[in-house]
Structures are given as C-alpha cells and as structure tokens.
Design a protein around this nucleic acid. Structure first.
Lengths: 151, 151
DNA sequence: GCTCCATGGTTCGATATGGAACCAAGATAG
DNA sequence: CTATCTTGGTTCCATATCGAACCATGGAGC
C-alpha cells in the first residue's frame, strides 16, 4: 500500500480527533460544573440504545476499560442520574437504568448546547452535515467491527 | 431552528466523538507503553506545522488548558523527544523544538499503525476518505474560528 | 520612573482514566 | 460434586487532565 494512502487515512483520523476534542470542550462548558463528557455520553447512550444493560456491555460500547466504566457509573449513581439493580438472570452482574433525573439532565445539556449548535450551523451548512453522517456512521461501524476481530 | 436540525448536528458530533475514541484506543495500543495520544499529537503537530512555537500557542492549537500542555511537554522533554529553549524575544516564554529522537518516535508510531490502517482501508474505501476530508477540515476550521469569538 | 494590568508558565489539589491484581458467581469437565 | 476456567465487577495504584491560585516578565498610561 502506497504511503499516500496510509497518510490519507491517518489525516482523516487526525482531523476527527481534533474535532472530537473541540466539541468535547464545547459540551463540557455547558454541563453543570464537575461533570465531564464521559458521564453525559453514558446517559446519552442509555437513552439512545435503551437502558437495562450491564456495565460491561456499556464499557464495550464505548471501548473503555471496565474499571473506567465502574467509575463513571459510580459518579452517575451518586448524582441520582442512574440506578444500578441486581441482574436476576446472573448473580455476578448488575443492570443500569436511567432515572427521570438522568433523562432531564441529558435533555437540559442538549438544550444548553443549542446556541453553540446554532453558531456552528451558521458557518457549516446542514446539507454538508447530511452528507457526512452516513459516511461517518459507516466508518464507526467498521472500527467497531474491527476491534472485535483484531490482529 | 427546528429540533431535527439541532439533532443532526448533535448526532454528527456524537459520531465524531465515538470514532475519535476508537481511533485513540487504536493508536495507544501501538505507542510504547506509558505514552498517550496527547503526547504523540504534540509531536505530530510540531512536525506538521513546524517547531519553535511557544507552549501556549500549542495549547491553544489543541484547545487544552495551558497547565495540561505544561504536563505533556514535561513528559516529552524528560523522554528526550523535545527540547525547551528560552525565547530570546520574550523573557516570559519558551520555545519548543522537536529532537531527532522525537521525529523518529513519531515516524515509528505512524509505521506501527500501518497494519491497522490496512485493515480499515479494506473495509472503508479510499474514495470515501477523500470525500470526507475536505468537509471535515472545513468543520474543524469552523470550530477553531468559533472558539476565538465565542458567545 | 512608577503603577496597573496583561501575558506566559508553573504549582497545587481534586477528579478522571487505565493497567493489574483481586474476588465472587457462573460454566465446564471429570 | 469438585476442580478448574471464564466472566462481571471492584479495588489499588500510577498517570493524565483541568480549574484556580500563584509568580515573573512585559507593556500601557501617566
């Protein structure tokens, strides 16, 4: 494979990393003090794909170590944004449920970002967003599948 | 602005965040143990845009607090990958230079990722990459410009 | 010159993240 | 049924990240 191809993929991931960093900063500026993106993302995940999942399943979805997820969930539970229940099917594991407070927290954060989104939308047309979304979803799925069958 | 528009932008940033996380994990698996993406990114930045910049300028380029950059640079200097010199123009600041060892470190890391890139390339065609790059660059520039003139 | 403010970096303390070791509960083999 | 292996989570420790306070130099106003 020629170098130029490698470097195109490399640049792609690089750009995505920078944009991720910039938007993370944007989001954290709108979250209540003391909360970070990782915690919001868990709530968002629970709403989007449904709750009642095990901590390990969530950790895998984010590709983070399970101990990191333990920590995030502890913070969220202390804040009353999620509930951890025993898994009746398996004595080892727990199930994670989002609370009403958690749903409100997520909705508020999204609302709080509206002005930021509006500024971005003014400079970055919606049709470009529409064009990007399917390709990026596909890339995410490729990376997701890749880690399951590595090397 | 209708909700659906906001949610498209929101989903875009969300996808980008996830891809960023997955590719960060990929990169870190290839770095020598103990090194982290942030440190590699600084070296990459110095090669791409040129060295001899101040720590603050680099911190701004990554949109990270200056104390975080102080830490990253300390690690890189201890490892002999960069050099910090006094700025002859300004007694307050320093200038950051990448060493030969630093250039080698960066090149090795990129080489080490080649097999990962190859697997991704097999499932994600190059022309899609080519299509994504200009749009993403534009989005990054929009976000970059936005933080300079916020609110 | 002197005062006041702005800028560039570091330090401190508190939280986040991740690797490794650990423990408990399920699964499997005999 | 026991021995062993695997799986789900937590704990421990080391490093990373970041807000706030701090210090030193530079620059502006007078």
């Amino acid at each position: 494979m020629p170098d130029s191809v490698t470097s195109d993929y490399f640049r792609l991931l690089n750009e995505i990393g920078i944009i991720g960093q910039l938007s993370r900063t944007l989001l954290e500026a709108r979250l209540p003090p003391g909360f970070v993106t990782a915690q919001f993302s868990v709530l968002n995940h629970l709403v989007r794909v449904g709750d009642g999942r095990t901590p390990l399943a969530i950790a895998r979805a984010f590709q983070v170590p399970k101990n990191s997820m333990t920590h995030s969930l502890t913070v969220l539970e202390r804040a009353g944004l999620i509930e951890m229940r025993k898994n009746p099917q398996d004595g080892r594991s727990k199930l994670v449920f989002i609370t009403d407070a958690g749903r409100t927290f997520r909705a508020d954060a999204i609302d709080a970002m509206a002005p930021d989104i509006a500024r971005i939308a003014a400079a970055f047309p919606r049709d470009v967003v529409a064009r990007l979304l399917p390709d990026l979803e596909r890339l995410r799925k490729v990376l997701d599948a890749d880690r399951d069958a590595p090397e």
